[in-house]
Design a protein around this nucleic acid. Structure first.
Lengths: 292, 292
DNA sequence: GATGATTACGGACGCCGTAAGCATA
DNA sequence: TATGCTTACGGCGTCCGTAATCATC
């Protein structure tokens, strides 16, 4: 695959390093890049020494990742459709879906004592990608959406998605915050607040921005972790506001959840799986327990 | 490209026909399909005699078109980034954008007497696809959206999009319709109405459904044409209601436009072009005249 | 001079076309 | 029996590895 070689070279900034990474020799990589450039009408894709993408190369690079992702998604989809249902179960889930998943797993383990289950916590995008590429049988993605809208997931090809649960939206803030005693808040009134962005836990920046209705958020802090504990610590310390389901604040007296009054906003959890794939007995059981 | 061969075989239902179409001989196609099946772990993709996709083949087929589209989009993007700005201008536009485009073209022709311009009318999806694959320098896509939401275009890779104009939404109905004398209508109240769907002119079914708030529309008529005249004739004949900008009904006394009262709904026109591509002098002029 | 990309060359493999084999309508 | 997919085989091109060349730090 010439594209994969190209991305490896561009990423590592070295023909030799890319060759080592892919199990080739330097000259083979050199020839592959030359072949790729030739197949595109002789357009140079990389500056040499130092190895940096050209303008055209940068364009190609931007297409390469989604292209490779969809290719592996297609491969995984075909293999799922043809293969036997797996006897193990791998689940990728957002942190916000963990309580519900944990409850289902609890029931499942009693019904299936010998359950071979692996759980990974990841951002919603990563959950969808893992399901698409066949890295797991089930995914639990949670996102902040307007009522009827689909979850804002990356386009990884067709996936089966079933709504598991919805939560109303609250703003989490430290207990000593001036707004902490309010009964409700309108996000639209908080456009100038300092927001705490947690794309790997809750909503990506663009979603928060849309929900708030601001063109761009003022000086936001971004938390890239996938866990709720770290995020809550930041909220408690006054790092910023964050939209989350109210139950996240339960048991954390230093954090207060104030309901958001926008009517059509919600957190929605969806169970993702291959369109026609059989997730196996364990997967089917878990899906049932999740209410899908 | 094995995928293209596979799609050709699946589409035509014949190895021989696909071979003729692609300029191969039958046995070459047979070997390519065999190679593709082998590369996927020996999964059969096609039933032979008659030639029909298997379950796995159907999965692959669903991935193939977007995959090939993105591949050609990537190629076009690279060539645009590397090539000279074109001296001709090809524009794909939705019918709803034609008045505005026509005005801009009128000004452009006076400023550029020797203007080499080709205009194609197409559905919004097709407009985006044409721009992405390099079939035209500029695209004008119009869609029905909620205020802050992006236009619901297919994922064809990164495109530059600039909002050109917005129109408020009306419901078009025949002048003798019971609702024709109303001052305003709520789409949510019209869930049971008979809708006239015009995905190639106005909004695709899913958008209308979302705007109306119904799970599914009752017995809708679909009009696949891209022209407004045919659609207006259907409205006048009482075939159904259709959401459109009010100006569409101007000069057509047999059709009445009643404003929709949902506040956040709008028709939005966006000018699409390659992210970093130079659309050429004519393209730049036209973009300026369009207000982008 | 050393690191690292390019070019030259040879062997292996892959791909297409010819031709024969074979299954189904 | 005829159509049409598959298999066998040979030529040609492609791709990778070895090795020599060249450029840059």
């Amino acid at each position: 695959m010439l594209l994969r070689t190209f991305t490896a070279v561009a990423r590592s900034g070295s023909f030799s390093a890319a060759a080592r990474e892919l199990g080739y020799i330097q000259s083979a990589v050199s020839q592959q890049i030359a072949a790729l450039e030739a197949s595109l009408g002789g357009v140079p894709l990389l500056h040499r020494r130092p190895v940096v993408p050209t303008g055209a190369g940068a364009r190609l690079l931007e297409h390469a990742e989604p292209l490779l992702l969809r290719a592996s998604a297609a491969r995984a989809d075909v293999l799922r459709a043809a293969g036997d249902p797996p006897d193990h179960l791998r689940v990728a889930a957002c942190a916000l879906a963990m309580p519900r998943l944990a409850a289902a797993v609890g029931s499942a383990t009693s019904a299936m004592p010998r359950l071979d289950l692996t759980i990974t916590v990841a951002a919603p995008d990563a959950v969808a990608i893992e399901v698409a590429r066949g890295g797991c049988e089930l995914g639990l993605a949670v996102g902040l959406t307007t009522l009827g809208d689909p979850l804002p997931l990356p386009d990884v090809g067709p996936l089966r998605s079933v709504v598991i649960s919805t939560d109303s939206v609250s703003v989490l803030l430290p207990a000593d915050h001036p707004l902490a005693r309010r009964r409700g808040l309108r996000l639209a009134d908080l456009a100038d607040a300092r927001w705490l962005l947690a794309p790997a836990v809750a909503a990506p920046a663009a979603e928060v921005r849309r929900a708030v209705g601001a063109d761009r958020l003022s000086c936001a802090i971004t938390y890239a972790g996938t866990d709720l504990a770290g995020l809550l610590a930041l909220v408690a310390a006054g790092a910023g506001l964050v939209p989350l389901p109210a139950w996240v604040a339960a048991g954390h007296p230093e954090v207060v959840a104030v309901p958001v009054t926008e009517p059509r906003l919600e957190f929605r959890a969806e169970l993702l799986s291959g369109v026609t794939a059989d997730p196996g007995a364990a997967g089917a059981l878990l899906a049932t327990l999740l209410g899908a």
